[in-house]
Amino acid sequence: MATIEIIYQGTLRTQATHVQSGTKILTDAPIDNQGKGEAFSPTDLLAASLGSCMLTIMGIAAREHQINIENTTCAITKIMAASPRRVGELKVDLKFPEKYSDKQQKILEKAALTCPVYLSLHPDIKKSVNFNW
């Protein structure tokens, strides 16, 4: 069974449905690539996937080690490259709501940098990760 089903709705818009839950996401081409920019672009979703994955895997590690990371935030800046048009760099800025010991910081950093999305990205995509403790 498929994980995601996607329908092209015309005018450079798609609707993706998560089959198990029925949750839907719209995408639009960005304004700088002939689109409306009224929703996430497919490359925005790539960036969002990285941040969500890092936070999720840190959450698993935090739960295992009794570390509270609730309200941790992740801001991602996506930088496009040309020829061919692609994601050239993802700048990740993680901000934590409280202070952690050196050991806890190492646990959380390792978790973030070994999330499946981070490890799946092509090595040509520069990944700059800033941990704001």
Score class of each variant (00 low, 15 high):
residue 5 E to T: 11
residue 91 K to D: 14
residue 83 S to N: 13
residue 46 L to W: 05
residue 30 P to N: 04
residue 81 A to W: 08
residue 90 L to V: 03
residue 74 C to K: 11
residue 33 N to Q: 10
residue 25 I to P: 00
residue 43 T to Q: 02
residue 57 I to Q: 00
residue 88 G to L: 12
residue 56 T to Q: 05
residue 23 T to A: 09
residue 121 L to Q: 03
residue 114 T to S: 03
residue 76 I to F: 12
residue 106 K to H: 12
residue 70 E to Y: 10
residue 120 S to Y: 04
residue 76 I to Q: 11
residue 48 A to N: 10
residue 12 L to H: 14
residue 127 K to I: 14
residue 6 I to W: 09
residue 132 N to D: 06
residue 27 T to D: 07
residue 100 Y to K: 15
residue 108 L to S: 09
residue 68 N to Q: 08
residue 94 L to R: 00
residue 23 T to D: 10
residue 117 V to Y: 05
residue 78 K to H: 07
residue 82 A to T: 13
residue 56 T to K: 03
residue 3 T to V: 14
residue 65 H to I: 05
residue 126 K to W: 02
residue 64 E to M: 01
residue 8 Y to F: 05
residue 98 E to G: 11
residue 11 T to K: 12
residue 111 A to F: 09
residue 71 N to A: 14
residue 97 P to M: 04
residue 105 Q to A: 08
residue 10 G to F: 06
residue 87 V to R: 04
residue 53 C to A: 03
residue 111 A to S: 03
residue 100 Y to F: 11
residue 38 E to Y: 01
residue 32 D to I: 13
residue 33 N to Y: 13
residue 72 T to K: 14
residue 78 K to F: 00
residue 124 D to L: 00
residue 55 L to H: 04
residue 58 M to D: 06
residue 40 F to Q: 09
residue 62 A to S: 09
residue 86 R to P: 02
residue 17 T to R: 02
residue 130 N to A: 08
residue 20 Q to I: 01
residue 103 K to P: 11
residue 99 K to Y: 14
residue 95 K to S: 11
residue 51 G to H: 01
